[in-house]
């Protein structure tokens, strides 16, 4: 039962952190609850579909279907996150101003929610498919099903609580700074996801350049530890990154920052004109 609890908790935690950050990043935007719920719901649906076709996906593209699918959805998430951040660089100031005027109708933030809903969908789908497969295995095996399912449910609950806590922690940040903090978090999230997509492309044999490991901190903080997983989601931590992963991580950071800077600069120009 404890094993089931831990497995489900780990996966929910990974998706939940992303949802928590997205919720905080969309504070004050109307309808965001609806958008995030839509992301979660379609994510659960997607997870079930991915789990149902796990065998077919796995054997597609001469056995690399699973890696390619992971890589593609991660790249879509990276693009969505980048898009949101660039949009925030342009409109963040208005949002903060409106957030501080309690009761004011926030009209600025209608556009980027599809992007973030997509990010939620992808996070829930990726982690969720593993939960669905695991729970399916429990049901098929049929032994001590109830205890295991109870463990799984408790894990789900614990993971949901952590999502709530991460959100509450983030919105405790004063309105002035909250979007700066969530922008940093979303940028790191994007870089981590980009590096992870490279890992899948390397596993599929699509990317073969720079395969050497840059460092190995698995003795200090293994990927399988809870803290390792937490940092993996938040900043893309990997105990043994390859040179290509590191390169893409840094390139993503640089690209997002550059696009944001350009976007906020053009905004200032427009304001002066």
């Amino acid at each position: 039962m404890l094993g089931a609890l831990l497995i489900v908790f780990r996966e929910v935690m990974e998706a939940g952190l992303v949802v928590g950050i997205v919720l905080a990043a969309t504070r004050g935007i109307p309808d965001r609850g609806w958008w995030v719920s839509l992301g979660v719901a379609t994510g659960v649906l997607g997870a079930s579909i991915v789990a149902m076709f796990a065998g077919a996906i796995s054997s597609a593209f001469s056995g690399t279907g699973q890696e390619l699918l992971n890589a593609v959805v991660l790249i879509v998430a990276v693009i969505s996150l980048t898009w949101h951040n660039v949009w925030m660089a342009e409109h963040g100031r208005e949002l903060v101003a409106e957030l501080r005027q309690v009761g004011a109708d926030v009209s600025a933030g209608r556009r980027p929610l599809t992007a973030l809903a997509l990010v939620v969908l992808i996070a829930v789908m990726r982690e969720g498919s593993e939960i669905v497969l695991f729970l399916y295995g429990i049901v098929v095996a049929g032994t001590s099903t109830q205890a295991l399912l109870a463990g799984g449910l408790l894990g789900l609950l614990a993971g949901a609580c952590l999502t709530g806590l991460s959100y509450l922690g983030l919105i405790a940040i004063p309105a002035r700074y909250i979007f700066s903090v969530t922008t940093v978090l979303l940028t790191l999230l994007a870089a981590g996801m980009a590096a992870q997509s490279i890992r899948f492309l390397q596993a599929a044999g699509v990317v073969t350049a720079l395969p050497m490991h840059v460092w190995d901190t698995s003795w200090l903080l293994p990927d399988s530890s809870i803290l390792g997983r937490l940092l993996h989601v938040l900043v893309g931590y990997t105990a043994k990154p390859t040179a290509m992963q590191l390169l893409v991580y840094l390139l993503t950071l640089a690209t997002v920052l550059m696009l944001m800077r350009r976007s906020s600069a053009s905004r200032r120009h427009a304001a002066q004109a």
């Binding site: 065998g55 056995g63 699973q66 497969l133 695991f134 295995g137 429990i138 990997t238 043994k240």
Partner: peptide, 24 residues
């Protein structure tokens, strides 16, 4: 009959293998 996730931190592998299926 149950799915399994073949995982290795040392080898950097993470791969789901459905029940009665194989993976390379």
């Amino acid at each position: 009959a149950t799915p399994e996730e073949f995982e290795s931190d040392d080898l950097d592998i993470e791969k789901v293998i459905a029940g009665q299926q194989s993976a390379t």
